[in-house]
């Protein structure tokens, strides 16, 4: 299991690009953290997740 934005997903073995695509995120509008480490956009295609990983996908929202 891989925790993606707090939810458990069967995603082990997939790359970050695949995850973003399948989950419906806009890759240009998000930043991704894998186990608290930021993953550069250029590495999404080559970075695969494994069981026990935690992925955070964030974007800008309104705020003061």
């Amino acid at each position: 299991m891989v925790k993606i934005n707090g939810k458990d997903r069967e995603a082990a073995g997939k790359t970050l690009s695949q995850i973003l695509e399948e989950e419906g995120y806009q890759p240009l509008r998000v930043a991704v953290e894998l186990n608290l480490e930021i993953v550069p956009k250029a590495a999404y295609g080559s970075t695969a997740v494994k069981d026990g990983d935690t992925v955070e996908i964030v974007s800008f929202v309104g705020g003061g």
Binding site: N5, G6, E23, G24, Y25, Q26, R29, V30, A31, E56, I57, V58, S59, F60, V61, G62, G63, G64
Partner: peptide, 17 residues
């Protein structure tokens, strides 16, 4: 203009940017 950082939403395709 200020903004905040939050978990991205997959449902909504509107982005503040």
């Amino acid at each position: 203009i200020t903004c905040a950082v939050r978990r991205a939403n997959t449902k909504e395709h509107e982005n503040i940017l």
